[in-house]
Design a protein around this nucleic acid. Structure first.
Lengths: 166, 166
DNA sequence: TATTGTTATACTCTATAACTATA
DNA sequence: TATAGTTATAGAGTATAACAATA
């Protein structure tokens, strides 16, 4: 008998269903809680967190930052505009490549990050209260693998049902 | 010596950092891949998936659906409007409580879901290709716990730094 | 020609407040 | 009074195309 095209058995499919439904909910919940408890969106959080790394103390090119965060350069531009409006980041010219612009924290941005950092730690503690150290290690690993697999998904275009009614 | 307010040690804090950064990326990536590979957003996916459950074959009150998906009724209204525009769902009156309205799939919505369901299974398979059955079970459990913990996070308002520059 | 950044547009989603009609 | 749904509005994020400057 030929193997089915739709690979997985039912039990696995249902498990997958739960995994991705939870991921959906977690994404929402994280977004909401970030805004409510920290006053910043998750993208802004990610941008500030990236720029605060010692590695990027002198800044990072916009396109590189976009790759790191998995955000397109057009959309990252919008995010940066709002952060610039609030005085937290700025863009400066690159000495080498004249097309490139370097994104970095302003002094105010650095202060803001320092102040919010303790709050973020408390956020982490509460949000993962029931995890042992080993469970955290294991979860990080799982999420890494999942992120990598998810990014590679590519289905053939054939068989995509029309979504719009007439 | 009194315990520190900012609970966790550095190693745990860094682990937490990675966990939530991955969650952020996964949320983004899932959103993007959902639109690209399936042609629907994650909220729409969740709504259609919920309504397609046998349990809700006869529909579900809007507020109940909102709770299930963790989306406010105002925002769910917008999501439903777009799905109604495309002919996939409709809202009908509730015989009992006259304030309530029941959301359900249209025949077209049911067909659409049936057609896309196989695609979603393939999506799942690729997106979690490197997970054993046991790893899936364990991941579901971790995500459940995390979702529950995350939803409960509540930090005191004091010490929230001002975000806006002058 | 390809890349970097930018501008522009349309759409979707989210947060919040206010309103209505029931209960 | 409280709840279910709706309307309205502002803000944010995303997808896509097109353009200028530089490599």
């Amino acid at each position: 008998m030929a193997p089915e095209l739709s690979s997985s058995d039912n039990a696995t499919d249902q498990l997958n269903n739960r995994i991705f439904f939870r991921l959906f909910q977690l994404g929402n919940e994280l977004q909401r809680q970030s805004v409510q408890q920290l006053g910043i969106t998750t993208v802004q959080w990610a941008v500030l967190g990236a720029l605060s790394r010692e590695k990027y103390a002198s800044g990072i090119p916009l396109s590189q930052l976009g790759e790191y965060l998995v955000v397109t350069r057009q959309n990252l531009d919008g995010v940066l505009k709002r952060l610039e409006r609030d005085g937290l980041v700025r863009r400066v010219a690159d000495d080498g490549d004249k097309r490139s612009r370097i994104v970095r924290l302003t002094p105010r941005g650095r202060t803001f990050w320092k102040e919010i950092r303790a709050r973020i730690s408390l956020f982490y503690d509460q949000a993962s209260a029931h995890f042992s150290f080993d469970a955290r290690v294991s979860l990080v690993h799982s999420l890494n693998v999942l992120q990598s697999d998810l990014a590679k998904v590519e289905l053939s275009k054939v068989g995509l049902p029309k979504r719009h009614g007439k």
